[in-house]
């Protein structure tokens, strides 16, 4: 019978250790030159549509206004929300793990007497901090641009919708970040995997589900009011008020639950894998 070896040595667990790992992870991945560059690129993308809107108002408003407004909203919704922001999250969350694995600095955490899962919980928290930071900096800025553009074009601004979008963006991107971190703990070259995943999810799977391209993540929260949403867009653009219904909160809960599930899987996977 094979001899069983059991652990008799205790690890310690305290807040200070986690704080150090969290601080180092944030400093390295988000407050580094690369992290700040990612935020800057997002801000640039957030500013960019306003230029088009501004240009539009200087022309014949009757000709350009609707087209500019549609392009403007399209830009924000498709390019920024669906592509730029999730890609930024994908890069940051993948690098948070894979960078340390590739350059082996993760070894310095793994050879301390703290449970492995705590290392990854700290990393996950630093990732959530990064996502929240990006959301707080970039998303409201983007919406301010959105509101400003609407004002220039003489459109009504629907603040409830913007607030809803902000909440959804944060939760959806936390969910997205937890999946990305899970990938990063499972596969090398996680950025590549992330991009493949993003393309599959955002464009193929969602296309199959909703018969339109883009916005897979948003399907989770939009599915219960997708009809309202489509009607809302299809009819006169932003000419009716939008009311948050309970169903969208239930979708937020689903997203939250999935975020927790993938966070758990990411921590478990990180703690149980080999670090050759």
């Amino acid at each position: 019978m094979e001899k069983q070896i059991t652990s008799t040595m205790e690890t310690h667990s305290d807040l200070l250790s986690n704080q150090v790992i969290l601080r180092v992870s944030i400093r390295r991945s988000i407050l580094s030159r690369r992290g700040l560059a990612i935020i800057l690129v997002q801000l640039l993308f957030a500013i960019y549509p306003i230029i088009g809107v501004y240009m539009a108002q200087t022309k014949d408003k009757n000709i350009y206004a609707n087209g500019a407004m549609e392009a403007f909203h399209g830009w924000i919704r498709v390019l920024f929300e669906i592509i730029i922001f999730p890609f930024s999250i994908a890069i940051v969350s993948s690098l948070l793990i894979s960078d340390e694995i590739e350059d082996r600095t993760i070894t310095y955490w793994l050879i301390r007497p703290i449970p492995r899962y705590e290392i990854f919980v700290s990393k996950l928290l630093s990732l959530f901090f990064g996502v929240a930071l990006m959301s707080i900096i970039v998303v409201p800025f983007n919406f301010l641009m959105f509101a400003w553009g609407a004002q220039i074009l003489g459109e009504q601004i629907y603040w409830e919708l913007l607030a809803h979008h902000l909440a959804i963006s944060i939760v959806a991107n936390l969910f997205f970040a937890s999946i990305m971190m899970f990938f990063a703990t499972r596969f090398p070259h996680s950025i590549l995997i992330s991009i493949i995943y993003l393309i599959l999810w955002e464009y193929l799977i969602y296309s199959i589900i909703s018969e339109s391209a883009g916005g897979g993540l948003r399907w989770f929260f939009a599915r219960n009011y997708i009809e309202q949403y489509q009607e809302f867009i299809a009819n006169e653009f932003f000419q009716q008020s939008f009311v948050l219904d309970v169903s969208s909160y239930s979708n937020l809960l689903i997203l939250g639950g999935l975020t927790l599930l993938f966070s758990f899987l990411a921590v478990k996977s990180g703690a149980k894998r080999e670090y050759p």
Binding site: I5, T6, S7, T8, M9, E10, T11, V24, R27, R28, D103, R104, T105, T107, Y108, L110, I111, R112, P113, I114, P115, R116, A271, K272
Partner: peptide, 27 residues
């Protein structure tokens, strides 16, 4: 086994063991 225990993912061993990695990586 190290100090009589299975070391894989068993960070408790590092109460008794110090490790200097080969790679030259730092923050």
């Amino acid at each position: 086994s190290i100090f009589g225990v299975n070391p894989f993912a068993n960070t408790g061993i590092f109460t008794k063991v110090g490790y200097c990695p080969e790679q030259d990586a730092f923050w």
